[in-house]
């Protein structure tokens, strides 16, 4: 699943990040495989999206979130 598809309030674990010009930026902001993320709010028109990442809030565009693959923590409840 891609991070951009994760519904608000659901928690997922990052599995991988696709190559892109912003991959390095995402990594240094703490988007690393194994890290938990939770979308907490969306800007009007659904983009950008703010994520709770470790202990802080990181906002990114839908585009950037699309390049991040995640595994939802509780796929039973999230489906």
């Amino acid at each position: 699943m891609r991070l951009s598809d994760l519904p608000l309030g659901n928690i997922a674990r990052i599995s991988s990040i696709e190559d892109s010009p912003y991959k390095e930026k995402l990594q240094e902001m703490g988007c690393i495989p194994g890290v938990l993320v939770k979308p907490i709010m969306k800007a009007p028109f659904g983009d950008p999206i703010a994520y709770e990442l470790e202990e802080y809030t990181l906002s990114m565009r839908r585009n950037e979130a699309y390049s991040i693959h995640v595994n939802p923590l509780d796929s039973l409840f999230n489906s």
Binding site: K25, A50, T57, N63, E64
Partner: peptide, 12 residues
């Protein structure tokens, strides 16, 4: 050609 991005911390 380098795509723009908006990866920004929202401070407390």
């Amino acid at each position: 050609n380098i795509p723009s991005y908006f990866i920004m911390e929202l401070p407390v």
